[in-house]
């Protein structure tokens, strides 16, 4: 059933280690009995994950991103979130809410599913733009303050997300 047995065991070990570190961070009580209970729960969780992995072997998520570029992208995204929050807050608090609602298609150039997910989540995370629907190669985006350069701003974000993808396929 499982072809690549070595890689499989390595993944199981990595999962167990990650879960145990998470358990240690969550628990905060380090008596022997409690720690052994934690080890037992990690083993049960790894067994369950292993069964799921065998059942849905094709749907496994593979993270292929550049680890250092993603930090830079994250900082840029934070600044964008604060800026767009400020813009939407001004609209909400102004006595006459001047809405300029519109919906349009934004092409996306990411190759992997994870890259597309990051792009769509980044669009939704900045208030003022929401990704409503995914079609082949483009997102339907709804915005509350449409202007002429909102399409180019999203194209800029698209290029940045594509840049943090490492070369695959």
């Amino acid at each position: 059933m499982v072809r690549n047995f070595g890689g499989f065991m390595l993944r199981a070990l990595f999962t167990a280690l990650t879960l145990f570190v998470l358990w240690l961070l969550m628990s905060g009580i380090y008596k022997p009995l409690i720690v052994w209970l934690g080890v037992a729960s990690v083993l049960v969780a790894v067994m369950v994950v292993r069964r799921m992995d065998v059942v849905a072997d094709k749907g496994r998520l593979e993270i292929k991103l550049k680890p250092f570029a993603i930090i830079g992208y994250w900082i840029w995204l934070m600044v964008e979130i604060v800026k767009s929050n400020w813009a939407v807050s001004k609209i909400i608090l102004s006595p006459t809410m001047t809405l300029n609602r519109h919906h349009f298609n934004v092409p996306c150039t990411q190759k992997t599913d994870l890259g597309q997910t990051i792009f769509a989540n980044s669009i939704t995370l900045t208030p003022g733009t929401i990704s409503v629907d995914v079609e082949d190669g483009s997102f339907l985006v709804h915005t509350v303050s449409y202007s002429d350069d909102s399409l180019s701003a999203l194209a800029d974000m698209d290029a940045r997300v594509s840049k943090i993808e490492s070369a695959v396929l």
Binding site: V82, N85, R101, T124, L125, T126, P127, H142, V144
Partner: peptide, 14 residues
């Protein structure tokens, strides 16, 4: 509804 989505994401993100 469509504009309320944006308002809800203000309190949810920032």
């Amino acid at each position: 509804f469509w504009s309320r989505l944006h308002a809800a994401s203000v309190s949810e993100s920032a």
